[in-house]
């Protein structure tokens, strides 16, 4: 078939058919791999997971919720896909897995709902090789949600910059190591951080400025401590916000109760928590609630918007003040 015809046939084929066509002959494989991404059909996957443990697993789910899974075994040097086993001989298991991910991403044009990486302690070189593949791919991955579960900071930064910031809505950073702590100042500089709407992190962060989370509608973050002044700064910024859904700050310490009372006045003592209420800008009905709770030695600040009817009897509601 002439090249133009082949290009057209591939354009109208689905992802699975193109993968099959690649297996027809070396010529087909070389031809398909030489095509521009724009010629390839959209695989329309809803999520892609890459799980690196003792083995590597590449999983993708299509728009009909059908899941496909590649397993790459380091011990047996093989790849299995839907029961079909390929022995990889002298090839590197990491290289084959990353090449397959590259192929999957080449076909992904529509937005993913979720891109998830689980990067365990095995395969130390995986993040760097992944980063090199993203550079080679030369386009950012469009996903609404990015989730990264890792055991060190060095595995997060090789991935984050390669996600399309304009598409990204939520970033989840999860730990595989109870003592993990990262310096977040590099991450907050990225366009991905600035454009995301939700952020969730289940381990300690340092080098953190409270102002950096003000653009999120939803945040869960944990760090050492926060001062009363910083909490007041947060209040001043959020009181004008129209999109706040909820903020959770998990702290090791909070020692500035007196300073906070000086700034915000006395709190309302609730069940296991201290509460303050502030009227939102341009609203009689919406109230911002700051709740400080102590749980097994740690402190949690929860900030959310509630209806005026939810303010407990006897609690003072501070009027809106221009900053």
């Amino acid at each position: 078939m002439p090249e133009l015809v082949m290009e057209n046939i591939i354009k109208f084929s689905d992802f699975k058919s193109v993968l099959t066509l690649r297996q027809v002959s070396k010529d087909f494989l070389n031809f398909i791999d030489s095509l521009n991404d724009s010629t390839l059909p959209d695989s329309e996957f809803s999520r892609i997971d890459m799980i690196v443990n003792e083995d590597i697993c590449l999983r993708y789910r299509d728009s009909n919720n059908i899941q496909n899974e590649f397993i790459y075994s380091q011990m047996d040097i093989l790849r299995s896909f839907n029961g079909k086993i390929t022995f990889l001989g002298s090839s590197s298991v990491i290289d084959v897995a990353i090449r397959d991910l590259e192929l999957v991403l080449k076909f992904q044009k529509s937005n993913l709902r979720l891109l998830h990486f689980h990067l365990g302690p095995s395969f130390e070189t995986f993040p760097v090789k992944l980063s090199n593949m993203f550079k080679k791919l030369n386009r950012k991955i469009k996903t609404e949600n990015l989730s990264m579960k890792a055991d060190s900071q060095s595995k997060i930064m090789p991935i984050l910059p390669f996600v399309e910031p304009r598409t990204l809505e939520r970033i989840d950073l999860l730990t595989l190591n109870d003592n993990m702590e990262i310096e977040i100042n590099e991450i907050v500089k990225t366009e991905q951080w600035k454009n995301a709407d939700k952020f969730n992190c289940d381990f300690n962060v340092s080098n953190f400025n409270i102002k950096d989370i003000c653009h999120f509608s939803e945040t869960l973050i944990q760090f050492l401590s926060v001062s009363a002044k910083e909490m007041d700064l947060l209040r001043k910024i959020l009181i004008d916000s129209s999109k706040l859904s909820g903020i959770w700050l998990r702290l090791k310490n909070f020692n500035e109760h007196r300073e906070l009372s000086n700034l915000w006045g006395p709190c309302f003592i609730g069940e296991n928590s201290r509460l303050w209420y502030f009227r939102m800008k341009n609203s009689e009905e919406e109230i911002m609630e700051f709740e400080l709770r102590r749980n097994s030695g740690n402190f949690t600040w929860r900030i959310k918007i509630i209806h005026i009817g939810g303010v407990p009897n006897g609690a003072a509601v501070h009027d809106y003040e221009e900053n």
Binding site: S13, S17, V24
Partner: peptide, 22 residues
């Protein structure tokens, strides 16, 4: 017409194994 024909060939390939396509 080429577009229609290529769509039909693509339909023909769908669900086939490499051996069947060969």
């Amino acid at each position: 017409l080429l577009t229609y024909c290529c769509k039909q060939v693509a339909m023909m390939v769908k669900g086939k194994s490499p051996e069947e396509i060969r």
